[in-house]
Computed example of a mutant assay.
Amino acid sequence: MKKFIFLFLTALTFAFVSNAQQSKTPLPAEVAQKNVDDLNKKLKLNETQKSVIFRFTFEQAKAQQELMKKQEKTGFDEGDVDKFYKMQNETSKNIRNVLKGDQQIAYDRIIEDRLSGVTEKGKKKKKGEEEEAPSDIKGLLSGPPMEKQN
Results as ranks from 00 to 15, higher is better:
residue 1 M to G: 08
residue 1 M to N: 05
residue 2 K to P: 03
residue 2 K to N: 12
residue 2 K to F: 14
residue 5 I to G: 02
residue 5 I to P: 03
residue 6 F to T: 11
residue 8 F to L: 15
residue 9 L to A: 08
residue 11 A to W: 02
residue 13 T to N: 01
residue 14 F to M: 00
residue 17 V to T: 07
residue 19 N to L: 14
residue 20 A to G: 07
residue 20 A to P: 02
residue 20 A to W: 11
residue 24 K to A: 13
residue 24 K to Y: 13
residue 24 K to L: 15
residue 32 A to S: 05
residue 32 A to T: 04
residue 33 Q to H: 10
residue 33 Q to W: 05
residue 34 K to N: 09
residue 34 K to Y: 11
residue 36 V to M: 01
residue 36 V to P: 00
residue 41 K to S: 14
residue 41 K to V: 15
residue 44 K to Q: 14
residue 44 K to D: 15
residue 46 N to I: 13
residue 46 N to P: 04
residue 47 E to K: 09
residue 47 E to F: 08
residue 48 T to E: 12
residue 51 S to Q: 11
residue 54 F to D: 02
residue 54 F to C: 03
residue 56 F to S: 00
residue 59 E to N: 10
residue 59 E to M: 10
residue 60 Q to M: 11
residue 62 K to G: 00
residue 63 A to V: 06
residue 65 Q to S: 11
residue 65 Q to H: 10
residue 66 E to R: 09
residue 69 K to G: 03
residue 69 K to P: 02
residue 70 K to G: 13
residue 71 Q to M: 15
residue 72 E to Y: 15
residue 72 E to T: 14
residue 75 G to I: 09
residue 75 G to L: 09
residue 76 F to Q: 03
residue 76 F to E: 07
residue 76 F to K: 08
residue 78 E to K: 14
residue 79 G to L: 13
residue 80 D to C: 05
residue 80 D to E: 08
residue 80 D to F: 08
residue 80 D to L: 07
residue 88 Q to M: 07
residue 88 Q to P: 00
residue 89 N to K: 14
residue 90 E to D: 07
residue 91 T to P: 01
residue 91 T to M: 04
residue 91 T to W: 03
residue 95 I to P: 00
residue 97 N to I: 13
residue 102 D to T: 09
residue 103 Q to V: 04
residue 105 I to T: 13
residue 105 I to Y: 07
residue 107 Y to F: 09
residue 108 D to G: 08
residue 108 D to W: 12
residue 112 E to D: 10
residue 113 D to A: 06
residue 114 R to Y: 12
residue 115 L to V: 13
residue 116 S to A: 07
residue 118 V to Y: 03
residue 118 V to P: 01
residue 121 K to E: 12
residue 122 G to C: 07
residue 122 G to Y: 10
residue 123 K to P: 02
residue 123 K to A: 05
residue 125 K to N: 12
residue 125 K to G: 10
residue 126 K to C: 10
residue 127 K to T: 11
residue 128 G to Y: 08
residue 132 E to M: 06
residue 133 A to Y: 11
residue 134 P to Q: 05
residue 136 D to N: 03
residue 136 D to Y: 02
residue 137 I to E: 07
residue 138 K to R: 15
residue 139 G to P: 01
residue 140 L to C: 03
residue 141 L to N: 05
residue 142 S to W: 14
residue 145 P to V: 15
residue 146 M to S: 12
residue 148 K to W: 15
residue 149 Q to L: 12
residue 149 Q to C: 08
